[in-house]
């Protein structure tokens, strides 16, 4: 399937992150996690106050049950 943009958010960093540190992405509804954490190492250093933009796209759909 073609990727569908689900949403885009922007925020400012509240701490410094170096390129050798690992960040993890998590999606939550209130306190309930809706995915497993996905780690990555940023390609560039981040400083407190830097603006980051996160884009979410749906790239695949869950296989449908073929009971019927």
């Amino acid at each position: 399937m073609e990727p569908v943009t689900i949403g885009q958010v922007e925020a400012n960093m509240t701490t410094d992150i170096t390129t050798d540190e690992e960040l993890r992405v998590l999606l939550r509804i209130i306190y309930s996690a809706k995915c497993t954490e996905a780690p990555f190492k940023p390609a560039e250093e981040l400083k407190r106050g830097d603006k980051v933009r996160i884009t979410l796209e749906k790239v695949s759909e869950a296989p449908k049950d073929e009971k019927a």
Partner: peptide, 22 residues
Amino acid sequence: MSFKPSEELKVGDGIKVTIEKV
């Protein structure tokens, strides 16, 4: 950072997350 998704998401859906510095 929070938003209302434009589409419903189901268990097993694959999501790509792109992180950019502005």
